[in-house]
Design a protein around this nucleic acid. Structure first.
Lengths: 157, 157
DNA sequence: TGGGGGTATGCAATTCAGTTGCATCATACA
DNA sequence: TGTATGATGCAACTGAATTGCATACCCCCA
């Protein structure tokens, strides 16, 4: 998708969620949807500020608003901050996340890798379940590769 | 279990995890294991300080140490803090947590309510999965009851 | 009996993520 | 025009967690 397409698609989505598609909102959503992994508020802010003047607080407010309206999902990163994921409507179909404890990166895991029967779970509980969050913690493939090299048999000469 | 039993059992567990069972550590673990739900560092601290002089930082350090050694599990509360759960060895057998978005309380959910095939999940992923965290967010039964009363048909005369 | 090393703890200061209060700006609308 | 409403900026603040460093405690060995 070209940058301008992504921009207008974001605008469209914001509008369809009943919100005013202001420039800042469009930029925040575009940043999230162009990323292949969930982003922290700080990531979004630091990405955007390079091209556009906006306030840190504005980013937090927009992300909270999006999360509240269901435009994006707010997930725990496994660390001290939250992540925001613009995989539209993917959750509730079983989409979950992987958090690398070495590099801190959070990735999306596709729903068909998830043998979780969400409806059964909800039906068996007496409380109202509104949201299910499944997070895997471990070492990502890229960190694993680095780790193997560091401790492994072959060293660079 | 009596208080002294719980105390000596905590001491025993700490020892078996290869750690020195200092008074502070025993007290922290006892507080966690006597609670029917996971506690935040602050909860543990405020509970203990009523009976015993110790520092806030010490509590954080002990909880981190316990989590690192696997004595307790460190879970995301769904809010900005972490929770610690001393359900010994229950996780990896599928134990998960429920977080009430109204009162903030976190509860343990038993594994037989969890139709999640953890091994299948691990086998299908290329990364090393060390820990799986499943958290349900919603409204607990007690808040649900209050909510119904507040908005409901019958009011106290 | 005393000294040295290692670990646990205390205390103060700091970091970090997120939040709040309030001023201002832009837009819509009477 | 005037005014209401919502978005944004800015500064200050909060709460959770972390860091650095000093001290206390304990064990071992001379």
């Amino acid at each position: 998708m070209t940058e301008s397409n992504s921009f207008s698609r974001s605008s469209d989505i914001i509008f369809r969620f009943g919100l005013d598609p202001t420039l800042n909102r469009i930029l925040v959503l575009t940043a999230l949807s162009e990323s292949d992994h969930p982003l922290r508020a700080k990531d979004v802010y630091e990405d955007l500020r390079q091209r556009h003047k906006l306030n840190r607080v504005t980013v937090y407010r927009i992300l909270d608003l999006f999360a509240e309206k269901g435009v994006v999902s707010k997930i725990s990163s496994g660390e001290r901050s939250f992540c925001y994921c613009a995989c539209f409507g993917r959750w509730l179909q079983g989409h979950c996340h992987f958090h690398c404890t070495r590099c801190g990166k959070v990735e999306c895991i596709d729903k068909d890798l998830l043998p979780l029967d969400e409806e059964a779970l909800k039906n068996r509980l007496s409380m109202d379940v509104q949201h299910i969050e499944l997070r895997l913690d471990g070492v990502c493939t890229s960190c694993k590769a680095k780790g193997t090299t560091r401790a492994g048999a072959r060293k660079p000469s």
